[in-house]
């Protein structure tokens, strides 16, 4: 047989620009599961992550919800941690210095009960150094005051996002709640408020009942559903929002494989974030990255831009 000279194939390029943040990989860690990253750094390789979004930070420490905070569900889990966090000061003094050299880009999720609390956190982090972007959490379903209330009303969304926008030059992601009638209206309000990218989706509000105790299973009664069970819902919302806004989308919700990640990108996401899947398999980012490269090689795709929104 004659020698066939193979076309020299370029290594697929995974680098992307997510609203001004240049990421070496389109795979991020979603806010929450990894906490502030320290514990997982000893366990897994962070290289496959383009970025890490650290757990929500508020102006003052929040103690979180009473236990039980977790329950496994069919192909997913419910959580009602309630945004327990050490507060801005301790985060900046203890956690941030350890995170600066972690490798992946660092995005800090910020939370509050009033617009002033959000802007207070944002303006301090803006000057902190070593932070590549902020993600405004207007969507946590697990606290009674604030949080999701901002994310279910377009005017409140606009108000919070534009207020934070005035306080920081850092790239601004806005994380949306799926617990709304029409997510595209909220996404447009976030874009108009000055967001550089949209993160979606946060968890779906749900609950379970303990039939022996005859009471809600979670200490907070309601919790957020995550995991593979919500993946098709998340994908549909990414699809909807991608048709409504010009800014890039960070897609998340039950992503558990390279196939899942590719579906989000083809629906219009620029990048994807992993959450519950990291509990199932702490090495998930690595295997998704390998799967992405394999798919791109096989289909002669050089950059992810070639397939972003291609299914639309």
């Amino acid at each position: 047989m004659n020698e066939t000279k193979e076309q020299p194939q370029n290594e697929p390029e995974l680098k992307i620009n997510l609203g001004g943040i240049i990421l070496n990989s389109p795979i991020l860690a979603a806010s929450g599961p990894l906490g502030y990253g320290h514990e997982y750094r000893e366990l897994i390789n962070f290289d496959p992550f383009g970025g890490i979004i650290v757990k929500g930070i508020s102006l003052e420490p929040w103690s979180g919800n009473p236990p039980p905070r977790l329950a496994e569900t069919a192909s997913g889990m419910l959580n009602a941690v309630g945004l327990q966090n050490p507060g801005l000061v301790q985060f900046m003094e203890k956690d941030l210095p350890l995170l600066r050299d972690a490798g992946p880009k660092l995005i800090v999720n910020i939370i509050g009960c009033t617009p002033d609390q959000y802007t207070g956190v944002a303006s301090r982090l803006d000057r902190a150094g070593g932070i590549d972007g902020l993600e405004i959490n207007i969507s946590c379903p697990n606290i009674k005051a604030g949080g999701m209330a901002f994310g279910t009303d377009p005017r409140s969304t606009y108000r919070v996002v534009s207020a934070v926008r005035r306080k920081t030059k850092l790239p601004l992601l806005v994380k949306l709640s799926p617990n709304v009638t029409d997510i595209s209206i909220i996404a447009r309000a976030a874009e108009e408020g000055g967001a550089d990218a949209i993160s979606l989706i946060n968890t779906l509000s749900g609950m379970l009942i303990d039939i022996d105790q005859k009471k809600p299973l979670l200490g907070n009664t309601f919790g957020g559903l995550s995991g593979p069970a919500i993946m098709p819902v998340a994908l549909r919302m990414v699809w909807q929002v991608a048709g409504e806004v010009k800014i890039p989308i960070l897609g998340m919700g039950g992503i558990n494989s390279a196939d899942d990640a590719l579906q989000f990108i083809m629906a219009g996401a620029r990048a994807v974030a992993l959450g519950t899947g990291l509990f199932y398999n702490p090495g998930l980012a690595e295997s998704i990255k390998t799967g992405l490269v394999k798919y791109m090689r096989k289909n002669n795709i050089n950059t992810l831009g070639q397939i972003e929104g291609i299914a639309r």
Binding site: G32, P33, L34, G35, Y36, G37, H38, E39, Y40, L43, K55, S63, G64, P66, P67, P68, R69, L70, A71, E72, M77, N79, V81, Q84, T276, L278, F279
Partner: peptide, 20 residues
Amino acid sequence: RMACGIGACLGCVVPADGGY
């Protein structure tokens, strides 16, 4: 009930004085 098992996710807590 636990998820991460290593202290990151804050899913498994027990009440203590002044928090969890």
